[in-house]
Design a protein around this nucleic acid. Structure first.
Lengths: 189, 189
DNA sequence: GGAGTTAGTGATTGAGTACTAACTTTCTAT
DNA sequence: ATAGAAAGTTAGTACTCAATCACTAACTCC
């Protein structure tokens, strides 16, 4: 139907891929599912990207970059405790609105281990670089305190895990968090 | 070759499955790979288990139960700060010796989300129950302090993530951790 | 030593999937 | 208007993988 420039198409492929890979991971997602979501024929994906791996890589990088941007925008002009709360709330809002995001993140992490073991270090390099950008985007607003940064990210990872496992908001596991995290319990979609 | 009782075989299937699923996840692991590792023909797996899903479920439950046991044994007779250090070190040792474990854990978490979305709540229930047992096994030794428990598990999740991504031990990301965590950086295998 | 049960295999099937090749349609520039 | 490029499709290939079926080999108990 609506024609698009290859660049625009690639963009929508990446978006669709993020959602599809989020639920199925690399192996559990067919290129056909991605194509269907984009609204384009499956073979056409291979014109836009050299292969499935490239699509996954692009989606992975985008995922990390997006998260970094959320932190940067939230913390803009703030410092210390204020920045911390702003980033925590922004992250809460992000994954409340788009639960795919944290799933895609987790898929990326496990995919790195697999790739690395299979001898593909390129993917790992890209992901680690993306993570470090994210790390910096948290590190600076928190007063360049490594301990604070680690703690913040640690809580974030636990949040990801609990949301992925589907613990409802009223569950005990949420008690140990900052108040707004309560909202994170399973949001059907 | 060596004949075994069905129960013993099931046991070795679970062990093999944990390792295979750890690298490939549910979809990235073939039943043939599992069978090969066990040293048995692929169709025979379907005598021991009703299907691939059942194997994954068994491996998932075993994975959580094993981790819980590590915490329980480490914290036995200890309380508070002492228990904390004992458990942290035990976990470090666990995933230094068997990196598959944390990968399998992460595979379980993402698999729950997928299963849940596909309408299969049974798997999620089992995993959440397993997680709560693990949670309790940390909660009690830490003086039944929810905040401490959450923090401890949060650091654990971040450790999992960083190890999965393959950050080497001398990397900055490990600075924010308790000293022994330094050992966690990629252990080739 | 033979009947019955339990452990295990080989051959196969049917569905799904990444990717290719050859073709068609729409836009754009002169 | 039309050549050529760019966007997109249909048809097909080679392969992998979960699951089934029909069968054989070994153990157990009388």
């Amino acid at each position: 139907m609506a024609r698009m420039s290859a660049e625009e198409r690639r963009e929508s492929v990446i978006r669709a891929a993020m959602k599809e890979f989020a639920r199925g991971g690399y192996h559990g997602t067919s290129t056909e599912a991605i194509a269907r979501r984009v609204g384009v024929s499956q073979p056409y994906l291979f014109r836009l990207f050299p292969g499935k791996k490239a699509i996954f890589l692009a989606a992975s990088e985008r995922c990390l970059a997006d998260t970094r941007r959320v932190f940067e925008e939230a913390a803009e002009g703030l410092e210390g405790e204020e920045a911390l709360h702003a980033m925590a709330n922004a992250y809460t809002r992000l994954i409340t609105e788009q639960p795919d995001r944290l799933l895609m993140q987790m898929q990326v992490y496990v995919a790195v281990a697999a790739a690395e073991e299979a001898g593909d270090h390129e993917f790992g390099e890209a992901v680690r670089a993306g993570w470090m950008e994210l790390w910096e985007s948290v590190h600076l607003p928190l007063g360049a305190d490594v301990g604070e940064t680690t703690t913040f990210l640690a809580y974030g990872m636990l949040v990801n895990t609990l949301v992925a496992m589907g613990f409802p908001p009223e569950h005990r596991v949420w008690e140990g968090f900052y108040p707004s995290a309560r909202l994170l319990g399973r949001l059907e979609k």
